[in-house]
Design a protein around this nucleic acid. Structure first.
Lengths: 170, 170, 170, 170
DNA sequence: TTTT
DNA sequence: TTTT
């Protein structure tokens, strides 16, 4: 079974951080993800997707990400249900993030200016730092400076691309 | 903005096919996607994810995929809301698939036996055919027989892999 | 930064399992992933994608997955380079899987028959078991049997879907 | 078969735009995607991933995205091979993007300053506009202002979250 | 011959 | 020197 989600969108408000009775940190937030297309009225709508993130990532996110921040997450779709105070069963579909990525803080969007009213932590390098992630993955050796510039590789500027329309499915 | 979902799971029942007043085909179904981990009681739970698919893909899917079928889809998360018959606003989070892939039909799972009761179309090659997909993507030239078996490429069996634990982040 | 890959394809041959000097298991294999579209000659081509997987998942995969098996993986794209025996720098782009999913074993495809020649472990439920995965993700409570049959939810069969072509972007 | 890739990274240089003999636009570029983890020396490495994009998206991207820009793409992994000028077969693994998303232009990163040397088109809202995408997907009706603040929904601030550590798999 |  |  595979259940894989990637979202990039903006926080509709500040992240809410809570703790379970056993003191596990949980953060919840909603991402507004603009659609790729316009509706019949020529407007671009958005999907408002609820996301949950746990533990250290939850605390990091709550510290850094404020309303309007551009955020990337990877995770999975979760469904669950509970009984509400009227005794009705409520069904919930949400995303559980296992990782997040700040792509643009509000500070950055404002051109580096402070947002006023209380302390806003300002990272020295405000964008696209890696906060999320519980456990690192594995890796092998890797390059710091690959080159790709050989022969008739299409990524080389040297030789003209060997392309014909036979290569195109249209 | 990015909104990308991949699911592989089983149909909880037969696909429901409807038509809009303007005669657009829409299919709805629920995928049961088993989780990767067990809960506190040692049970493996599943997420039950609602999916919508449109047009030709909807009709193809409804023709082929029956309860229990293993299905892969790619798409996006959509949120919408409507007012129910009691005048309450209902919020829906679901997946809009733009593509699907039969990974195992019930016929295949049953060892090729017919499922009885009405006509069941039996593909000559029942698994992993491509039904879904509205518009093909683009491609360039491509290989039918790459080899990867040269030099000290780790995919070659020839030379021993040049691996040290320095390459491992653990 | 986000780097997310999902593949479902067939093993071009048996998985190769090796160990690093520090005794870390690594498995390498190639997935043949058929394309969604046909080329100019009406043929369906495939991409042959090299994949690496580490540690316990590597050993599990090597035990279970044989040539022709249908496999799902999630992971990331990795680039690296090394110097070959002729002193040339070789650039490699491959996928590092952090998880795999058997979707169909050869045994299953053959209708449950043994594959002969040595012992083939036969799972009681041969398909879509979860072998891969290093660390479980987090979850909250969840349902085992949601029903989705309330009100005018479009996933309910009760009330007709409230759909108009105004909802369609085409 | 499923072949799905999502990347967010930075352009290692300006996009290269070419045309096939049949006048199809193709853009090639490399994304530097920083890894989530540090290597044995405490350095954060990157993967340098070659990407191809076609037609209108290619022209849009080449117009807007300059070296250092933060870019999101969705697409698939493609393998192909060709014979180089020495008569050797060269194997290529790259990503074919079907969509892109500008997440931060250099202009935005520089605090709105011009980049000098020639005309740089400055979008009124420089980030996260939707340039890419050949064909829109389908949609149904959708909400512009969901509220999520009802009952004991965990996304509501009203009632305390009904969480226990039984919900946690660790 | 790689981004920040 | 590739899967079905």
């Amino acid at each position: 079974m595979i259940n894989n989600v990637v979202l990039v969108g903006r926080l509709t408000k500040d992240v809410e951080l809570r703790y379970t009775p056993q003191n596990q940190a949980v953060a919840t937030f909603t991402l507004a993800v603009n659609r790729q297309f316009k509706n019949a009225n020529g407007e671009r709508e958005a999907d408002f997707i609820n996301v949950v993130i746990w533990r250290q990532s939850a605390e990091n996110l709550a510290n850094w990400a404020k309303k309007g921040a551009l955020l990337g997450i990877t995770g999975r779709i979760q469904t669950r249900n509970y009984e509400n105070t009227q005794g009705q069963r409520v069904y919930v579909t949400e995303v559980v993030a296992d990782n997040f990525q700040m792509l643009e803080s509000r500070a950055a969007r404002d051109g580096g200016g402070q947002t006023g009213g209380g302390y806003t932590p300002t990272p020295s390098q405000p964008n696209t730092s890696n906060f999320g992630g519980n456990q690192p993955s594995q890796t092998q050796s890797s390059a710091s400076t690959p080159d790709f510039g050989r022969d008739s590789d299409p990524f080389s500027g040297g030789t003209p691309m060997n392309l014909s329309d036979d290569d195109l499915p249209f």
